[in-house]
Design a binder for these strands. Structure first.
Length: 498
RNA sequence: GGCGGGUUGGCGGAGAGGUUACGCAGCGGAUUGCAAAUCCGUGAAGACCGGUUCGAUUCCGGUACCCGCCUCCA
C-alpha cells in the first residue's frame, strides 16, 4: 500500500500517516462562514484538502474515508446582513432573513466549489443544527473546572489547560505581553475566550442555562467533530491563519472536555494566498471572489491548476500571468483529448488509473506541483491513459475541460458520396460563439480551398487576421483549418464578421 | 514585542549533499501560400555572509528583504 507522509503542524515534522483505524480515515476541515461569496483565498484549502480527500480515497478506498467540513452559519456579519435587509423593508422575521441569507450563500458556495472540481465532503454540518451538543460540551467544561459563567457569558479558562499555546508555539504570558486582547472585566485572564455569549433581541439566540444566547466561534468545531468523527480522529485541516486562535481553542475545548481522547492527530495548514504579490483586500482593490473569476471567463479548471501549482505549505501568489500559463497547458491537454479518434490510438480511458509515480508525488505531503509536472510529461509523450488517470486523481473534470477549452477543427472530407468540411471538436459548439465559429470556420475553409487554386490569398488573409484580432488562433493545415479560441478570445469582435 | 512562512534561471516552480527538473517565454532550425500550431535543438539559477564537507542551491549559524498570525479571517 502507498505510504502517505504528511507535514504535521503540531509536531513540526513530516510524518508517516497511519490512521487510528487502519482501514478507515477521518478528516475534519474548517469550512466557510456563509455570509458572502467565497473569495479566492477561501478556495485554496478547499482544493488542497479535496486533493487529500481524493488521495485518501484512492489509497484506502472511496468508502473508507469520512470528510467533514463545517458550515458556520452563526456569525455577526450574517446577522448584520439580515438586519440590513429588514431595515430595507424585507418581510419576515430576523431569523427567517438569516435563514434566507445562509441558504443563498451556501448554494453559492456549492456552485463555486463545484466549478473548481471539489468533491462534496461526506458531511457538511451547520453550526445551527448542533447547538445542543455545544451547550452540553460547555456544561461539561464548566463541570470539569475549565470554564466559568460570568454576566451571561461563558468563558474558557486558558490557565486551566497547561498545553494551551502548544500548537501555535505561543505562551499565554507572551501573548498578553503583546496585549491586543479584549480586556473584559468579567474575564479571569485576558486570554480567556468566549464559549457562549448573550444575544440581544436583534440577534439570533437559543435558550441555555446561561440565558438566551449564541455560541462562540470555536466551540462548533469541537462539538461537531466529536459528534461526527468521535473524540479522536486522524486529520484536522484549515488555513494557517486559523492556527491561532481558532485551532488552539478547539484543542483546548476538546482535550479538556474529553481528556481521555486524543482529538486530532495530524494538523495540516495551508499557507495564505496573495494576489499580484499583495494580500488580497478590498482596500487594495485586488479582492475578488471565485465567482468573479468564473464570470470573467476563467474556467474552474484553470483556477484549480493554478492553485495546485504551488505546494500548499508555501504562500501562493495569484497572478494573471499564472492563469494564462495554466490555461495554455490545459488547452493543449483538451486539444489532445479532443483529437479525432481516427488520428490517435483508440484507448478506453474509462478505467484509467493514475500511475503510481503520481500517487507517490501526492503521498509525499501532497506534492501537487510534481504531479502537474508528471501531467505535462504524459501530455508530451501522448500517454493518454496516464494523462487521464492523473487528471482524474487531481480532480480535473474531463468533459468540462474539453468543453471549455478544446479547439474547433474543420477538415476537408470526401468519402466518395459527399465532400465538404467536417467539424471535429469537443468544444462548446452549442453556445452562441460556438455556432459563430463553426460558420466562420467553414467559410475560411472554402475561401482557402479556392485560394490554393487561384493563388489569390487576399480574402483568406483578411478573414484570418480578423479572427486573430478577435483572439482566435487560426491554424492552416494540410487537411483543413482549425479555429482555437484563445486566452484573449473576444466573441463580440466576431459579430462584425457575420 | 512574540510566533510562523518565504527568498531558485526572463517569469512560474520542484526534487535531490555530487549526475538535464519541468512548464511558460526567448533564440536557431524543420515545416507553412504567409502565419499559427507542432517537432528538433539551445542559452540561462538558487538573496547575502560565514560554517560543516573531498564537494552545498540542498545541512548548520547569522544578516537583509518580503509575507502572514498574535483582533473577524482560508
Amino acid at each position: 500500500m502507498t505510504t502517505i507522509r504528511l507535514h504535521n503542524t503540531a509536531t513540526r515534522a513530516k510524518e508517516t500517516f497511519t490512521p487510528l483505524n487502519p482501514d478507515y480515515v477521518r478528516m475534519y476541515v474548517c469550512g466557510p462562514t456563509v455570509w458572502d461569496r467565497a473569495h479566492l483565498g477561501n478556495a485554496r484549502p478547499v482544493v488542497v484538502f479535496d486533493v487529500l480527500f481524493r488521495l485518501l480515497r484512492h489509497v484506502y478506498g472511496p468508502d473508507h474515508v469520512t470528510y467533514v467540513r463545517n458550515i458556520t452559519d452563526v456569525d455577526d456579519k450574517i446577522n448584520a446582513e439580515a438586519l440590513r435587509r429588514r431595515q430595507a423593508g424585507a418581510p419576515g422575521t430576523l431569523e427567517a432573513l438569516i435563514h434566507q441569507r445562509t441558504e443563498e450563500t451556501i448554494a453559492w458556495y456549492h456552485a463555486d466549489m463545484d466549478a473548481l472540481g471539489a468533491l462534496r465532503p461526506t458531511f457538511e454540518p451547520r453550526a445551527t443544527d448542533y447547538i445542543r451538543p455545544m451547550v452540553a460540551m460547555i456544561e461539561d467544561l464548566i463541570a470539569r473546572g475549565h470554564a466559568y459563567a460570568a454576566e451571561g457569558h461563558v468563558l474558557f479558562d486558558v490557565r486551566s489547560y497547561a498545553a494551551y499555546g502548544r500548537l501555535s508555539g505561543r505562551s499565554v504570558d507572551d501573548m498578553i505581553a503583546g496585549a491586543r486582547v479584549e480586556v473584559a472585566p468579567f474575564k479571569r485572564d485576558p486570554m480567556d475566550f468566549v464559549l457562549w455569549k448573550p444575544s440581544s433581541g436583534e440577534e439570533p439566540g437559543w435558550d441555555s442555562p446561561w440565558g438566551r444566547g449564541r455560541p462562540g466561534w470555536h466551540i462548533e468545531c469541537s462539538a461537531m467533530s466529536h459528534e461526527l468523527l468521535g473524540g479522536s480522529f486522524d486529520i484536522h485541516g484549515g488555513g494557517i491563519d486559523l492556527q491561532f486562535p481558532h485551532h488552539e481553542n478547539e484543542i483546548a475545548q476538546s482535550r479538556c472536555a474529553h481528556p481521555e481522547e486524543g482529538f486530532a492527530k495530524v494538523w495540516m495548514h495551508n499557507e495564505m494566498l496573495q494576489v499580484e504579490g499583495k494580500k488580497m483586500s478590498k482596500s487594495l482593490g485586488n479582492f475578488f471572489t471565485v465567482r468573479d473569476l468564473l464570470d470573467r471567463g476563467v474556467p474552474g479548471e484553470v483556477i484549480r491548476f493554478v492553485l495546485l501549482g504551488t505546494h500548499y505549505s508555501k504562500p501562493m501568489d495569484w497572478t494573471a500571468e499564472k492563469a494564462r500559463q495554466a490555461e495554455t497547458v490545459l488547452r493543449k491537454i483538451a486539444e489532445f483529448l479532443g483529437e479525432d479518434p481516427l488520428t490517435k490510438d483508440s484507448i478506453d480511458t474509462q478505467y484509467a488509473k493514475a500511475p503510481q509515480e503520481v500517487v507517490d508525488a501526492l503521498a509525499n505531503d501532497l506534492n501537487t506541483s510534481s504531479a502537474l509536472t508528471l501531467l505535462a510529461t504524459y501530455l508530451k509523450n501522448r500517454q493518454e491513459l496516464q494523462l487521464v488517470g492523473t487528471l482524474s486523481l487531481l480532480g480535473f473534470n474531463l468533459s468540462s475541460l474539453t468543453t471549455a477549452l478544446a479547439p474547433f477543427s474543420f477538415h476537408a472530407g470526401d468519402n466518395g458520396f459527399a465532400s465538404g468540411y467536417r467539424l471535429t471538436t469537443h468544444g462548446t459548439e452549442g453556445s452562441v460563439y460556438g455556432s459563430m465559429l463553426i460558420e466562420l470556420g467553414n467559410r475560411l475553409s472554402e475561401l482557402r480551398a479556392q485560394a490554393l487554386k487561384t493563388k489569390d490569398f487576399s480574402s483568406v488573409d483578411a478573414l484570418k487576421s480578423a479572427l486573430v484580432s478577435a483572439g482566435v488562433e487560426v491554424r492552416m493545415e494540410k487537411q483543413g483549418v482549425s479555429l482555437v479560441p484563445g486566452v484573449g478570445f473576444d466573441p463580440a469582435k466576431l459579430e462584425a464578421l457575420q
